[in-house]
Deep mutational scan, measured.
Amino acid sequence: RLYEREDHKGLMMELSEDCPSIQDRFHLSEIRSLHVLEGCWVLYELPNYRGRQYLLRPQEYRRCQDWGAMDAKAGSLRRV
């Protein structure tokens, strides 16, 4: 689950498959919190699986710093 605000607030989007462009699919370029329910995912800073990568394991991420990012920029997401 992807959230537009910290602490799992605001608009929530659910994802169960790879997403090459978060902007195209959800009209957002920033994700401020996440909740990974199962499996491991890689969040990429840019669309089409480019830029900085962040490995996400099943857990709650209340803010972008929790997954190691300096800002909430999110371009794509892929399951590993």
Rank of each mutant, 00 (worst) to 15 (best):
R1K: 13
R1L: 13
R1E: 03
L2D: 01
L2M: 08
L2T: 05
Y3D: 02
Y3A: 03
Y3G: 00
Y3L: 00
Y3H: 05
Y3C: 04
Y3R: 02
E4D: 11
E4K: 07
E4F: 08
E4T: 12
E4C: 08
R5W: 10
R5H: 15
R5A: 08
E6L: 01
E6N: 07
E6P: 07
E6M: 04
E6A: 08
E6F: 04
D7W: 06
D7N: 15
D7Q: 08
D7M: 09
D7T: 00
D7I: 02
D7S: 08
D7R: 06
H8R: 12
K9T: 11
K9M: 15
K9P: 03
K9N: 12
K9Y: 06
G10N: 04
G10H: 02
G10F: 04
G10Y: 05
L11D: 09
L11E: 14
L11M: 14
L11S: 12
L11W: 08
L11I: 12
L11A: 11
L11V: 13
M12L: 09
M12N: 12
M12W: 10
M12I: 09
M13Q: 10
M13K: 10
M13I: 11
M13S: 07
M13T: 07
M13G: 13
M13D: 04
E14N: 07
E14F: 10
E14R: 07
E14Q: 09
E14I: 09
E14D: 06
E14T: 11
E14G: 06
E14S: 09
E14C: 05
L15Y: 04
L15H: 04
L15S: 02
L15A: 06
L15E: 01
L15R: 02
S16L: 08
S16D: 14
S16M: 07
S16I: 12
S16Q: 11
S16Y: 12
E17Y: 06
E17K: 07
E17N: 06
E17A: 10
E17W: 10
E17M: 09
E17T: 09
E17I: 06
E17R: 07
E17V: 09
D18T: 02
D18Y: 03
D18N: 13
D18W: 00
D18P: 04
D18F: 00
D18M: 06
C19V: 07
C19F: 00
C19T: 06
C19W: 02
C19M: 03
C19N: 02
C19S: 01
P20Y: 00
P20K: 11
P20I: 06
P20R: 07
P20H: 15
P20V: 08
P20W: 06
P20F: 03
S21D: 13
S21A: 06
S21F: 04
S21P: 05
S21T: 06
S21L: 03
I22W: 02
I22R: 03
I22S: 00
I22C: 05
I22H: 03
Q23Y: 10
Q23S: 11
Q23R: 12
Q23L: 13
Q23N: 14
Q23V: 13
Q23H: 12
D24H: 12
D24F: 03
D24Y: 08
D24A: 14
D24R: 10
D24E: 15
D24L: 08
D24C: 08
D24W: 06
D24N: 10
R25G: 05
R25T: 11
R25W: 11
R25K: 13
R25A: 12
R25Q: 10
R25M: 11
R25V: 14
R25I: 05
F26Y: 06
F26K: 02
F26L: 08
F26E: 01
F26D: 09
F26R: 01
H27R: 14
H27W: 07
H27C: 12
H27S: 13
L28R: 13
L28G: 07
L28K: 14
L28V: 14
L28H: 07
L28C: 14
L28P: 02
S29T: 14
S29H: 13
S29I: 07
S29V: 08
E30F: 09
I31S: 04
I31Y: 02
I31G: 00
I31R: 03
I31C: 02
R32M: 07
R32H: 15
R32E: 06
R32D: 01
R32L: 07
R32I: 05
R32C: 10
R32T: 03
R32V: 02
S33T: 00
S33F: 00
S33L: 02
S33W: 00
S33P: 02
S33Q: 00
L34A: 13
L34V: 13
L34T: 02
L34G: 04
L34D: 05
L34C: 11
H35S: 13
H35L: 11
H35E: 15
H35C: 10
H35Q: 15
H35W: 07
V36F: 01
V36G: 03
V36C: 02
V36P: 06
V36I: 14
V36M: 03
L37T: 08
L37M: 11
L37R: 11
L37Y: 08
L37I: 13
L37E: 06
L37C: 05
L37P: 02
L37K: 11
E38G: 10
E38P: 04
E38Y: 08
G39Q: 02
G39S: 10
G39Y: 05
G39M: 01
C40L: 14
C40D: 15
C40Q: 15
W41C: 09
W41R: 05
L43P: 00
L43G: 04
L43C: 04
L43M: 12
Y44A: 04
Y44N: 08
Y44D: 00
E45L: 02
E45Q: 10
E45S: 11
E45M: 03
E45D: 09
E45K: 06
L46W: 09
L46Y: 11
L46Q: 09
L46A: 15
L46C: 13
L46S: 14
L46V: 00
P47C: 12
P47W: 02
P47M: 02
P47Y: 01
N48Y: 14
N48G: 13
N48S: 09
N48I: 09
N48D: 14
N48W: 11
N48P: 04
Y49F: 09
Y49R: 01
Y49P: 01
Y49E: 03
Y49G: 00
Y49Q: 02
R50Y: 05
R50G: 15
R50P: 01
R50C: 14
R50K: 14
R50E: 13
G51E: 04
G51T: 06
G51D: 06
G51S: 00
R52L: 10
Q53M: 08
Q53S: 15
Y54Q: 03
Y54K: 03
L55D: 07
L55F: 13
L55C: 09
L55N: 09
L55V: 12
L55S: 13
L55R: 14
L56M: 05
L56G: 01
L56H: 00
L56S: 00
L56I: 06
L56Y: 01
L56C: 02
L56T: 04
L56Q: 02
R57I: 05
R57Q: 13
R57D: 10
R57G: 11
R57S: 15
R57M: 08
R57F: 13
R57N: 15
P58C: 08
P58F: 01
P58R: 07
P58H: 05
P58V: 07
Q59C: 13
Q59E: 07
Q59T: 09
Q59N: 07
Q59W: 06
Q59H: 09
Q59S: 12
E60K: 10
E60L: 14
E60G: 12
E60P: 11
E60A: 15
E60S: 14
Y61I: 02
Y61T: 06
Y61V: 00
Y61E: 04
Y61R: 00
R62F: 12
R62M: 15
R62W: 13
R62N: 04
R62P: 10
R63E: 09
R63G: 07
R63P: 00
R63D: 05
R63Y: 09
R63H: 11
C64H: 15
C64G: 05
C64W: 12
C64T: 10
C64N: 03
C64R: 04
C64V: 05
C64A: 11
Q65D: 07
Q65T: 14
Q65A: 13
D66Q: 06
D66S: 08
W67P: 01
W67L: 00
W67A: 01
W67Q: 04
W67V: 01
G68W: 03
G68S: 07
G68T: 00
G68R: 03
G68L: 06
G68D: 04
G68K: 05
G68P: 03
G68V: 00
A69Q: 07
A69L: 01
A69F: 06
A69C: 05
M70E: 15
M70Q: 11
M70L: 13
M70C: 10
M70S: 13
M70P: 15
M70D: 15
M70G: 11
M70K: 13
D71G: 11
D71Y: 11
D71C: 14
D71A: 06
D71W: 08
D71Q: 11
D71N: 10
D71I: 08
A72D: 06
A72H: 07
A72Y: 07
A72M: 00
A72R: 03
A72I: 03
K73G: 08
K73P: 05
K73C: 10
K73Q: 09
K73W: 08
A74P: 03
A74Y: 03
A74W: 04
A74E: 05
G75E: 00
G75C: 06
G75H: 03
G75A: 05
G75P: 02
G75D: 04
G75L: 02
S76W: 06
S76P: 03
S76D: 03
S76L: 02
S76R: 04
S76Q: 03
L77A: 06
L77C: 08
L77I: 15
L77V: 11
